[in-house]
Amino acid sequence: MDLIINLVINGLATGMLIFLLASGLTLIFGLMSVLNFAHGGLFIWGAFTGVWAYQTSGSFTLGIGVAIVTGLVLGVITEKLIVRPVYGNHIQQILITLGFMLVLQEFIKVVFGPNQKAVFPPAFLEGSFIVGDIVFIKYRIFIIIVGLLVFMVASYILRRTRIGLIVRAGVMDKEMIQTLGVNIKVIFMSVFMIGSALAALSGMLHAPYSGVIYAEMGLEFSILAFIVVVIGGMGSFTGSMLAALLVGLAQAFMAYYFPALSLAVNMILMTIVLIFKPQGLFKVEGGAR
């Protein structure tokens, strides 16, 4: 029982990190049908800059702040320099964002050195506490709480505010809301920046969780995010949350019982979804096909 609860918490924590990465990906895709293969690059840049700030200043909060700022800045650069010139051409978009991903990944090695770095959680999140006879690791609980908070705030914005209404309408039919006088470019830019910031936050939170950071983890982690986007339905925010938890749990349990199969099981999940529900489990009505 102890083991199962720990695996569940582990899975939920991984799932939350994947969700932070995948939610930006899915909204950007839904809004502009741009599949940003460079998203994993923002993840590692968030992790490395955040960890750098955290380790030099000693303040974890400052580290998170720096990671988010990095995400916002890189989001603007990616959108303006990389995505906008090829807007409307799917093939070029896919090609160019992958190229940018590799440039981001290699620049990490130039700036921070090619070796992996060890990261430890801050003192106030280190260790564990015991409820009944079950041991909870503090940092994992922290990740789950942050993930839930982000989900709730973003859901609130998407459902209850005017901006959220515009974004949701944009996902359904972007031509229509342009005719209603909404400047979709501004909206898209903001969604891109927020998505990038979430990816960077995800990277920063992932660093003490896994204990080491290295440049290639961006591509590895973004593969999980792609699987989540496909399972959850491209463009669906809630779908990305549920699919991320599913993938995180599958990952955690398989990594414990059959470590060799942990990536395979997610591929199988994705394959089953592609066969039976190719639009994903939570298809967005009228969304990008």
Binding site: F29, L35, F37, H90, I91, I94, L219, E220, I223, F226, I227, V229, V230, M234, L263, A264, M267, M270, T271, L274, I275, P278, A288, R289
Partner: peptide, 21 residues
């Protein structure tokens, strides 16, 4: 068979994930 019914993104993603596997 799995992905070519869908948009080009799917083939790109599935092959990327599969090569990782």
């Amino acid at each position: 068979m799995l992905t070519l019914r869908l948009k080009s993104h799917f083939y790109a993603m599935l092959t990327l994930a599969l090569s990782g596997l």
